[in-house]
Write a protein that binds this DNA or RNA. Structure first.
Length: 307
DNA sequence: CACTTGACCTGTCCGC
DNA sequence: TGCGGACAGGTCAAGT
């Protein structure tokens, strides 16, 4: 669920909070969430000062003065929440009730509850008493320590496609990269992090709706003008979402434990049963590439002869 | 190599 | 009310 805009929002928050802080203590409860040995932690994390907070695709990179980095992938339910010394995050019960009642689409701004909670996997404590909590209900995410110089070399990062918001990512590059997957449904292709980095299920659905392309359309059946529309849609939607502080879906919160507001702007994601803002037809939910997929059945049609 | 499906996990929701 | 099953969706491994 944290996709590029959510991770970027967290990065911006942590960049304003972490640099200059020195790590004093680390606690963790689940080996897959934090696989490093205690001797590495002692040598390269404890006593190190945070120098920078970067992002590549959906991965956050916290650089340390020890020339090691702490890298984190939040997968679906991960959170990184900074709590200043003495500050207690307490959930406002009326906001939590609103959350339950209205679900992820409701533009609430509630804080997470008191931490640590049972989803807490790692706690970093800093000199001065502030803490950074890595929470992850489903335990798919991970945090690990490695030499900064090795970050670009780990398999996952090495294979990543280009950052879609960088200037170097041109329409020609987008078209060339999706062409590697001629027979795949376009949704599977833009979700593939080795084609381009950072798009997940929410922004895939939104982009394809904006470009009026059926998510199951094989790449080779998409005309060039539509490919360019899709390229623009992806960039516009990711940019808008970052401006909105990321989405407000389910488990996502920013570095201060607050929700974003992007889903207020979402046109199709989780809006099945509601009407398409452009044409008024009911949005439906289907399954494409093994994932829940939301489309306008009138404007996003499969080309003749496909499936 | 191109492409698809299931596994990893836990919490929530839906139907009986 | 309890209970089983489907579902959530990012990535990897194993399948065709």
């Amino acid at each position: 669920m944290p996709e590029l805009p959510e991770v970027e929002t967290i990065r911006i928050g942590l960049q304003s909070l972490l640099p200059g802080k020195t790590v004093k203590k680390v606690e963790h409860d689940w080996p897959k969430s934090f696989p490093n040995s205690s001797s590495d932690v002692k040598k390269f994390l404890i006593g190190a000062k945070i120098t920078d907070v970067r992002r590549r695709a959906k991965v956050l990179i916290i650089d340390l003065s020890s020339n090691y980095s702490l890298i984190t992938h939040l997968k679906m339910t991960g959170q990184l929440v900074f709590v200043p010394k003495g500050h207690k995050l307490t959930a406002d019960s009326s906001q939590l009730t609103a959350e339950k009642k209205f679900g992820g689409g409701h533009p609430s701004n509630s804080l997470v509850g008191r931490l640590p909670d049972k989803s807490t996997r790692v706690i970093l404590e800093f000199n001065g008493g502030a803490k950074l909590f890595f929470n992850d209900q489903r335990k798919f995410g991970w945090m690990r320590l490695l030499p900064t110089i090795q970050v670009p070399e780990i398999d996952f990062i090495k294979k990543l496609g280009p950052e879609p918001l960088e200037d170097a990512f041109t329409p020609d590059i987008f078209i060339e990269r999706i062409n590697r997957r001629q027979n795949s449904p376009i949704k599977a292709v833009i979700l593939d992090q080795t084609v381009l980095a950072g798009v997940g299920n929410i922004y895939a659905d939104e982009s394809l709706w904006l470009a009026k392309i059926h998510p199951a359309t094989p790449v080779k059946k998409i005309p060039k003008n539509k490919r360019i529309l899709l390229y623009r849609a992806i960039r516009d939607i990711l940019t808008l979402s970052i401006k909105s502080g990321g989405s407000s879906d389910k488990n996502y919160v920013n570095a201060e434990g607050k929700k974003g507001s992007y889903l207020k702007f979402a046109q199709v994601f989780r809006r099945d049963g509601q009407t398409c803002p452009r044409c008024g037809i009911e949005i439906i939910k289907i399954r494409v590439a093994g994932r829940g997929t939301h489309i306008c059945p009138k404007e996003q049609r499969l080309p003749r002869g496909v499936k």
